[in-house]
């Protein structure tokens, strides 16, 4: 037991400590790549760094939108898969495929699908006589394309998780509700959602954390472009470390991203706790 827990600490906790220390150091080409203490200068720089704030905003925007979309679609797919349909296993397998592919592989695929004007979507638009869309070249659209690609990949995960939750809800609850004259929408709101809420919370927490660590997709799909409109915090930190060789600031950025994630997760848990009595009340 001890070796495993030590390894866990070494991989997860130690880096955070190291970042905390490194964020008080300057370690760049100018310092000969040796750390030099600079106090809180890195943090000051962070607060004044417009690119940081822009990336933070873009990361959050991406995270909230894609997780929200995945929840809605995931619930729809879960409800579909929860019905006794023919070929349910096949359907489950098929819908699982996007999740299993490496992000870099599917990002490269999406680059071609989003191509303007030769991607299939734009070919279709052109065929219909509509103007083509610059999915990857327009700062106001590109981030949405990224949400689309991410939703395609991770909806299966959310759907399977919610499906597992749905399967814990006893069928007689629905039968009882139907006897009392509840329609489908009412039983969804009064039974399914309240009982599913712990699973929704798990899905949201997990997906939000992952979405805030957005890196693979952005790097291969857009490399942060156009005009930095899709750059994420993780990508910015990566660029600082690997391209600018500014390790102190990179560490500061990553710690900031981590804190942001904690804040957001805490917010999600709080929201869930606050919504619980209301949902429970609705059930009575």
């Amino acid at each position: 037991m001890a070796p495993a827990l030590l390894l866990l600490l070494a991989v997860f906790a130690l880096p955070m400590v190291q970042y905390a220390w490194l964020s008080t150091q300057a370690q760049t080409v100018l310092t000969g790549l040796e750390p030099q203490p600079v106090g809180l200068a890195q943090w000051q720089r962070l607060l004044q760094d417009g690119r940081f704030w822009q990336d933070a905003f873009q990361t959050l925007r991406f995270g909230l939108c894609s997780v929200g979309l995945e929840l809605v679609l995931g619930l729809a797919v879960a409800l579909l898969l929860n019905q006794p349909l023919r070929g349910r296993t096949l359907l489950r397998t098929v819908s699982l495929l996007p999740w299993a592919l490496p992000t870099t592989v599917m990002a490269l695929g999406w680059r071609w699908i989003f191509n303007d004007p030769f991607g299939p979507i734009n070919l279709l638009l052109a065929q219909l006589g509509l103007p083509t869309v610059s999915f990857l070249g327009d700062p106001s659209i590109t981030w949405l394309s990224m949400v689309w690609a991410d939703t395609w990949k991770t909806t299966p995960f959310v759907a399977l998780l919610l499906l597992a939750g749905l399967q814990t809800i006893p069928a007689d609850l629905y039968e009882a509700a139907a006897l009392e004259g509840a329609n489908r929408w009412q039983s969804l709101r009064r039974i399914t959602l309240p009982l599913l809420s712990p699973y929704i919370l798990i899905a949201v927490l997990f997906r939000l954390a992952q979405a805030l660590g957005l890196f693979d997709l952005v790097q291969v799909l857009t490399a942060g472009g156009p005009a930095g409109s899709t750059e994420s915090l993780a990508l910015y930190a990566y660029i600082n470390a690997m391209r600018f060789l500014d390790f102190g600031y990179s560490a500061t950025l990553m710690l900031a991203a981590f804190l942001l994630m904690l804040l957001l997760s805490g917010g999600a848990v709080l929201l869930w706790l606050l919504s619980r009595p209301r949902l429970a009340g609705g059930q009575r």
Binding site: A209, G213, D216, A234, Y238, A241, F247, A257
Partner: peptide, 9 residues
């Protein structure tokens, strides 16, 4: 659940 990309450095 940790976004492990933050650990790369």
């Amino acid at each position: 659940a940790f976004p492990y990309v933050l650990l790369f450095l």
